[in-house]
Design a protein around this nucleic acid. Structure first.
Lengths: 190, 190
DNA sequence: CCGGTGGTATACCGATCGGTTTCCCAATCT
DNA sequence: AGATTGGGAAACCGATCGGTATACCACCGG
């Protein structure tokens, strides 16, 4: 039974929220959100406390998929450097796809000025985890200063995603990978 | 006479717009904007066509100051590398000041999804000019690939400003300058 | 003294904001 | 069959959105 079942109101809501917040920005209204999800406002407000909570939940639900994007099919068969470079290769590939508007977690951090917004916490966590991933690989790769290298790589990642997402830069000539490679070289990661 | 005169409605409007859009985001209302500026809505709408135009004009007016920030007191006395590094040193110093929320031009590019928004054009131009500045110095400094180096430096600049501005990263240990220096080294700029 | 002119204040417009509430239908359980 | 429940449709709340229009005031050159 459960296999053929239609998506639950909760799932439809989170799907629509993920898409609308990403393409239209965080100022999308509750009315439009519910209309797109095919869910009544009544149902939305008994599933979530507020519009903020919907945004936070929609960001959180996509975290596993977002992070799985960056891992190689067979991580064991690759070097730390290759695993790091893969992140930037994936970013460059994603950035040229139609409808790409940059990393949604960075966008939320920039758009939401309110430091108490629950969605900020989710976005912040995703960024901390990406840095941790870089740091672990940097250590394993023998970087001179793994913590510094990790922060540098996130800098490049976010800069590339913000600029490509807002349409002022193109990554399809390998800008991000070349920059990451230069930093890996400088840090002594072979 | 003109020295002691009170600021014109236009200037008060642009000042308030610059501050409010920066601290509260682009979704600040016309009502609040006019209240902060001490200007009636009527005056605003006969000085500007729309709220969009006010935002664009306020961004545009700050361009000369914004760019002058990055130039050394005596540019002649410095090398191309020093002039480039100075940009990142200024960024790092600005980023630790209270009320810093990142580069306003990058924030506008991220927040405004509408590609037709007049403020986007202003922000885009500022970014193009920063890249051009980097490229000119890169050429003069003998970089192997000046155009590539310039794009890499803007990547780092925007990544640093976005992350520092949203409070997830601190630049006060020289993260941005160290990253820029590594890219300059790799490009052969002495 | 009088006619502009540039400005503020304010009411108003229809639409939308986030959020609550009421009503009612259809599926489900016993 | 009858009772319970989930959820959609829609009215409603006060507030605010971007934008317009009316009314009044203070200064200006004649």
């Amino acid at each position: 039974m459960t296999t053929t079942e239609k998506a639950s109101p909760r799932d439809r809501l989170l799907d629509a929220a993920g898409e609308l917040f990403y393409t239209e920005g965080v100022s999308i209204g509750v009315e439009a959100l519910c209309r797109a999800a095919g869910v009544s406002k009544r149902s939305m407000y008994q599933l979530f406390d507020s519009k903020e909570a919907v945004l936070a939940a929609s960001l959180e639900r996509r975290v596993p998929w977002y992070e799985s994007q960056f891992s190689l099919p067979d991580p064991q068969a690759a070097t730390p450097r290759e695993r790091i470079m893969n992140v930037f290769e994936v970013l460059e590939k994603a950035s040229v796809e139609p409808g790409y508007h940059g990393c949604p977690y960075l966008a939320v951090l920039v758009e939401l000025k309110d430091p108490e917004h629950p969605a900020r916490e989710v976005a912040h966590m995703v960024k901390r985890r990406l840095e941790a991933l870089f740091r672990a690989e940097a250590e394993q790769g023998g970087a001179h200063d793994p913590a510094l290298l990790a922060r540098q790589l996130v800098l490049v990642f976010d800069g590339a995603s913000a600029r490509a997402g807002s349409g002022v830069e193109r990554l399809d000539d390998g800008l991000a990978t070349k920059t990451a490679a230069a930093l890996l070289d400088a840090a002594g990661v072979g």
